[in-house]
Write a protein that binds this DNA or RNA. Structure first.
Lengths: 225, 225, 225, 225
DNA sequence: AATGAATGAGCCTTCATTCAT
DNA sequence: AATGAATGAAGGCTCATTCAT
């Protein structure tokens, strides 16, 4: 990407007026469109500005550099996905563990509003920038919170999850989804794929629960995020 | 970015002589070193040629473009890892399912000869090029073969794996390892991380086996690669 | 020249402001100067940009590639020459056929503002690019128009010219001039050379006129551009 | 072409043995084929050597540089064309001026064994190298000789031709043919085109003859090559 | 005589970013 | 706040040519 600076966050100006907010939204939307159509190769700041209908200078008024724009898009979609999951969990008819897991998996599979190419490009770019951590942090928190909620519910046997367990829980399913996105696997949105992901996660959680008595009682060393 | 051609493989000349083979090896090794020290940003064809002690022209004699070199490095390491796994399975003292899984997981974790930065860079680049499929194909074949071997062993209950199961099996564990590499997680090489990955895979395999009687008997629709 | 693309015209941005127009003019002028001094070998985009006093990026802002710049220069000079011929025909004291022909020949000989090396380089490059047609089209049109004007004048015997006649008329004289330029013949600007060219063209026109009665009367098959 | 040296002639070794002569012929033929198929862009020394089935080193054994090879090809074809003209003039049934002119024109149109793309490429390259003079010299000599022969024949009125006349005579017709080749004009091999070229040349010669009495008597200043 | 691996100067081009208006 | 012309570092890549074997 030949970026000269790599400020993780680099917003120059917080938009305070309605017009400015619209401009920012237009730029982010333009970025998504460019990515969707032309992939990472077409994603140049000039191209985004042009499609957004603003000058390149205006783009830099709101996004300190190319990365900031990419990150903003990624964050926006990630937050939308998490919010979606939250809604799904809330309104879920099936309150069982499997029901909850399925709701989460399904939402993650269908994230990014169906813009697969854009999603792929964003994932590629995020990974290429080494910004994966940033974006995964909220996911981990979310899962930890969900896990804690489940674990603390009356009849649950789910213990507090270790750092490694949390990591694997969030990265394995998401990693598989991600791989399917990057490889453009046709079965990404199939029921079979979803079923297997759910099976894997549920099986893993089951194994964790089953291991509890042997491994430990309530342990202060465990992370309870 | 701005790649003009994307030939998956782009070797120009097959080295027929000992001297040429050495040159090729030197170039690939130089690439790994450059990547290890300076990451993707430092990975320029000129830099690689210089470190390899050959002219840029010589580099292009053997690698059609920058990508071909990257791919060659990735392939070499991937094959080395698979071979390593093969050896590990062969000489494994513990022939149990968990023993086998652990051998595979451990090898994947320690792949790329411990050059983590180089590994990260290669993964980033491969993903950014959308070349993930190419590299994962042999892994999937390998796992399918291993799965088939296990499944056909006398007392095994492991059925033939479906396409989706195969995918998830190979990508979830590898996806988690990959994420740990990209995020430079400190626990990557820890015993705890390995344990959890093994637990996840074993649990998933157990769930697959448990599901067989209900789902289906021997089914010709299943992939038995 | 190792050109990868061959877009006949490849202007990136239409200059809308006075400053931009000046920049473009400066670049084209610089190109002519570089060509005049160092020939085709010295004609590199970086050299042109430097002489023009702009950055290489600016050059590419207005000319999609090296070729586009070359073509722009060629077009500019070609159009200047045609305009010059137009003025010469207009103000010509000698309205005879020979007078007109001489005016045209003389202007073509002295085209390109006397910059013979630049002219040679441009011709070479244009031919090497296979772009000769593009540049000759307006000349053919011009000659056709002139021929038609002459032919339709009261006492003229000049018939409408066929495609082949038009072609030969425009290419033979110009071809001889071009050859003299490329071969750097010392007599290029001599009176004797001009005289002979005029003689050739006039003789050919005379032959065409003489042939009319035998060949055909007014014939709709003939091109009257 | 980025040539570093430009030795007009640069043969390294005169082949004295049959095998060597075959090799040289194979290389020249390969050059013609490469040119015919891929144009100037494909004409690299390595490509020619490969097609000729020899190593690049061998190519350089016989041709000092790329130019020498190009020139050799051009010469070979040019000489073939002149020889062809000679034969045509010899066996010509029509001994009139027009008959002779037509024989010459026709041969020039059909030169290069019908390999139009190769011819075009050679012309482009020759012009781009500024080697036009070299190749045209024999043509001029030939025409001068032919003119002298005609002029000295009993009833002929053709005077010795001046340098400029010779030049125009050879370059105008050939220039028109050349332009048709470069522009890939479809009528290149048409009867109409040939007719007009003949008409032009004959008309010009007629004008020269007609001018003799007024201009000069036998003049020592005239070139009688 | 032939081979072909190696050379390397240097070209074209991209695109993130700045700043005067 | 917005504009957009201008910047320029930097990188991928070509190909004629050499020379040790």
């Amino acid at each position: 990407m030949a970026t000269r600076r790599q400020p993780v966050e680099n917003k120059r100006r917080i938009p305070r007026q309605a017009r400015a907010a619209e401009t920012v939204a237009a730029i982010v939307e333009a970025a998504a469109q460019i990515l969707e159509r032309g992939g990472l190769a077409a994603f140049t700041t000039n191209a985004v500005a042009e499609r957004a209908g603003v000058s390149i200078g205006t783009l830099y008024q709101y996004f300190g550099d190319k990365n900031a724009l990419l990150l903003a898009l990624a964050r926006q979609e990630m937050e939308a996905a998490l919010a979606e999951i939250g809604r799904a969990l809330q309104g879920e008819v099936d309150p069982s563990l499997e029901g909850r897991v399925r709701a989460m998996v399904r939402t993650m599979i269908h994230a990014f509003r169906g813009r697969q190419r854009a999603r792929k490009a964003v994932v590629q770019a995020i990974l290429a920038q080494g910004l994966g951590i940033e974006l995964m942090a909220p996911v981990a928190s979310f899962i930890a919170a969900a896990g804690a909620a489940v674990g603390s519910s009356p009849g649950s046997m789910l213990p507090a999850l270790s750092r490694e367990q949390l990591f694997i829980l969030s990265r394995s399913a998401l990693g598989a989804i991600r791989a399917a996105v990057l490889e453009e696997q046709p079965f990404l949105r199939s029921r079979g794929f979803e079923d297997e992901l759910v099976r894997m996660v549920v099986a893993y959680l089951g194994a964790i629960i089953a291991a509890v008595p042997r491994d430990l009682g309530p342990d202060p060393g465990r992370t309870r995020v």
